[in-house]
Design a protein around this nucleic acid. Structure first.
Lengths: 261, 261
DNA sequence: CCATGTATCTCGCCG
DNA sequence: CGGCGAGGTACATGG
């Protein structure tokens, strides 16, 4: 940890912030502050105790005592300025960015703790079970949707957009498959459009199937009104399928994550 | 600040975490850790230096050195457990929740800094310029959409859903207005459905207008194909309108934010 | 660089 | 408690 100071006075804090905000350090500030944002919208947050985090890619977050999401933030910042308002006895931190033009102003009344650190984290997050994994699981094992299903194409382009999976069933009928983790009314409309489009192209009865790990009664009704089908897919199957694929691809090249301080 | 310890040994850290994780304190841990998540999906994150934040509502975030978003998290947690793996020399923090059933396991190899604090923040974030503010701005001053427009109803219910604004133009034609900050293809479909619905109800030529602060060429094409219109609204106008309304509502009851430590 | 679509989305609102 | 829609959405990916 490069710096760790409790209750710094503003001139000391200013010096440290001026030096480290623009460099690749993680800066944490616990303190009493008010925050204003103006840009894509406008927001105002009165004084309160918060944790401000400036990350090494220049992103800045203002976290309150609760909630997953920060109260204010800036994903990536072009320039930081720090100054002391002698009259008001405030330390002002301003994070500006262009494109879109926006600015966050953090006005500290007190700083309880200021730390500066350089974090090393080379490892990558591996997630399994997202929508693409469901696509891949279907391609790998079409039986999870329906017996004797044959996948023709993934991401098939049509004038109405991209069809997730295009296939034929045991009767050789064409099947349009739309995959969604959280299906809603719009998903049904989208599937409907694809089916209409494919019917124009291939004529004859085209089946439309919505594949999802969960479903609501209302969306199910919409589907049935339109003679579309629903197939439930188990997330566990998808994750297993992903891990099987992942392992087969790893082979000897996997030496694990490298890490050094 | 209730506690602040640099490089605590695990038994000391375990004691503090056991006491404070389940209480309404903000806990910050800077350290070297690996993280696994399993629940709605599954994820694996190898060891790296990170900042772990447990908030007062029991939410937990694992932040890496960059990016706005945490690498792992849990919005609200039902139970925390802390234990020491003597063999591996790890301190393990487990956050579990039910509904949905999921668990985040954070395995520390080193803890550089551990702080416990209770933040007080009673102030509310006031945002202006979101979608509802655009609705209100239109109702307040329909001229920002079109001259001589008269608003009939907001949130008008139809079988296809709720129409943002229902109005009549200078020719007394009915106008369906859909407001979106980030319009896309689905927005066009939605507007189309509303217009179809209103045409069924009132017969005659119904106009459909998409009101948004920004627009893309492709969505504009979709609109024109369907004889729908687009009106650009300036965010600045919306914010001004909001502030005018806000000020007129404040009056004498505004004594500013109350705050006490 | 902009446009598209997903997210362990989160969060608030409303039934 | 579940469904629905918005977000200063953020973020990755593809053009």
């Amino acid at each position: 940890m490069e710096k760790l100071i409790q209750n710094p006075d503003f001139s000391e804090a200013e010096e440290i912030l001026s030096e480290y905000l623009k460099r690749e350090y993680t800066v944490q500030i616990n303190g009493l502050c008010a925050v204003n944002y103006q840009g894509r919208a406008k927001s105002k947050l009165d004084r309160g105790e918060r944790l401000v985090i400036k990350k090494q890619d220049s992103a800045i977050l203002v976290h309150g005592p609760d909630n997953y999401q920060p109260k204010n933030w800036q994903p990536e910042v072009d320039s930081y300025t720090v100054e002391i308002d002698e009259e008001e006895k405030h330390l002002i931190l301003e994070a500006k960015r262009t494109n879109p033009e926006e600015v966050v102003e953090i006005r500290f009344e007190e700083i309880e703790l200021l730390t500066v650190d350089q974090m090393v984290d080379k490892s990558e997050l591996k997630v399994s079970g997202d929508e693409v994994d469901i696509h891949e699981a279907i391609e790998e094992e079409p039986g999870i949707v329906e017996e004797e299903l044959k996948v023709i194409e993934r991401e098939k382009e049509t004038p109405a957009g991209f069809i997730d999976v295009f296939a034929r069933d045991s009767d050789d009928s064409y099947v349009v498959i739309e995959v969604k983790r959280n299906p809603d009314y719009n998903t049904v409309l989208q599937l409907q459009r694809y089916v209409d489009e494919i019917e124009d192209e291939f004529k004859g009865g085209i089946r439309g199937i919505l594949v999802a790990p969960k479903m609501t009664d209302k969306v199910l009704d919409y589907l049935e009104e339109r003679d579309l089908e629903f197939v439930d897919v188990e997330m566990a199957d998808v994750i297993n399928s992903y891990e099987a694929i992942d392992n087969s691809q790893k082979g000897l090249s996997d030496f694990g994550a490298d890490y050094e301080v």
